[in-house]
Simulated scan of single mutants.
Amino acid sequence: MAALSAGLEQAGALAVEYSFSVLGAVILLIAGFIVAGVVERAAYRGLSGVRGFDETLKKFLSKTARYGVLIITVVAVLAQFGVQTASILAALGAAGLAIGLALQGTLQNIAAGIMLLVLRPFRVGEYVDAGSVSGTIVEIGLFATELKTIDGLFVLAPNSELWNSPVTNYTRNALRRADVTIGIGYGDDIDLAQTTLAGLIDSDERVLSEPAPTTFVSELGDSAVAVTARYWTKTPDWFQTKLDVTKAAKLAFDDKGISIPFPQRDVHLIGQDKD
């Protein structure tokens, strides 16, 4: 009976002790979830106040802050029951290292995605060329970027590939320069060709007056003299303006009798004297 009484007393003491531990753990969990939600919303609002900050990155960072608070909460709850938190942190560190090694390529894409969202070498709707990938940006994700090629194809490029390649953005700057080069015959009037080209680009309202357009002889080729018109337009007008100027130059040269020769090659035959 004495042993039973002592056992009951010890069990009662443990029950009281663990009741407080369980109660403290429940309070910590509730408080942790509340604080995690507050931190997530505060981080999102704070990042939203930064002008031009990407929506995907705002959600990612605010969720990261939330999970960080939850991890701290779980560690604190386990400490309530006498678990050594140092060993937990060491285990989490080892697990994180193992996961990082296993998902090295994926984490590299995430890191590249964050850098792309922060530095913004391209935005949605811009046409870019990055290594073997080119097209209009449709969506920038944390793992990959979606593009649409000029002929309407779907391309999903890993962020690490885009980040590790030089990026040429064709639509970022407001103005673009264009060169229209046309070859004329060696017997044609060069001044007339330049004057004709100059008149064409001066009469086009899409061609900017500053920087001033110019025409010049750019090359003396094997079969033709290359006459170039150089001008600047707004970026959205660049492609169609170049097409229109090229067509108008062909029609104007035909009207003025300026030839656009086919490739030619002179062949000299050297005969041998017969005995």
Rank of each mutant, 00 (worst) to 15 (best):
D179C: 02
V180N: 05
T181Y: 06
G185R: 03
G185L: 13
G185I: 11
Y186D: 01
Y186K: 01
G187C: 04
G187M: 10
D188A: 06
D189L: 04
D189R: 13
I190S: 11
I190A: 13
I190C: 04
I190D: 05
I190E: 13
I190T: 15
D191S: 15
L192T: 02
L192V: 07
A193M: 03
A193F: 01
Q194C: 11
Q194K: 15
T196S: 08
T196F: 09
T196K: 04
L197C: 06
L197R: 00
A198D: 08
G199E: 10
L200M: 11
S203L: 01
S203E: 13
S203F: 06
S203G: 07
D204W: 02
E205I: 09
E205H: 11
V207P: 10
V207A: 11
V207L: 07
V207W: 04
S209H: 09
S209Q: 12
S209G: 13
E210W: 01
E210R: 10
E210S: 14
P211F: 12
P211C: 08
P211E: 09
A212M: 04
A212G: 05
P213G: 03
P213T: 01
P213A: 02
T214D: 04
T214W: 07
T215V: 15
F216S: 08
F216T: 06
V217G: 05
V217D: 08
S218Y: 01
E219P: 08
G221T: 07
G221F: 07
D222L: 11
D222S: 14
S223Y: 12
S223W: 07
S223G: 02
A224L: 07
V225R: 07
A226E: 09
A226P: 03
A226C: 05
T228M: 02
T228H: 05
T228C: 09
A229D: 11
Y231H: 06
Y231V: 06
W232L: 06
W232G: 10
W232C: 08
K234Q: 12
K234L: 13
T235Y: 02
D237F: 06
W238Y: 11
W238N: 12
W238M: 06
W238S: 02
W238A: 15
F239T: 07
F239D: 14
T241I: 11
K242M: 15
K242Y: 10
K242E: 13
L243N: 10
D244K: 00
D244P: 04
V245T: 10
A248C: 13
A249W: 04
K250L: 04
L251K: 14
A252E: 08
D254Q: 13
D255A: 15
D255I: 05
D255F: 00
K256N: 14
G257C: 02
I258T: 01
I258Q: 02
I258F: 12
I258E: 12
S259V: 05
I260H: 07
I260W: 08
I260Q: 15
I260A: 10
I260C: 12
I260D: 03
P261V: 07
P261H: 02
P261E: 05
F262K: 14
Q264N: 13
Q264K: 15
Q264R: 15
R265H: 10
D266M: 11
D266N: 09
D266R: 12
V267G: 00
H268I: 15
H268Y: 14
H268S: 12
G271F: 12
G271K: 00
G271V: 08
Q272R: 14
Q272D: 15
Q272K: 15
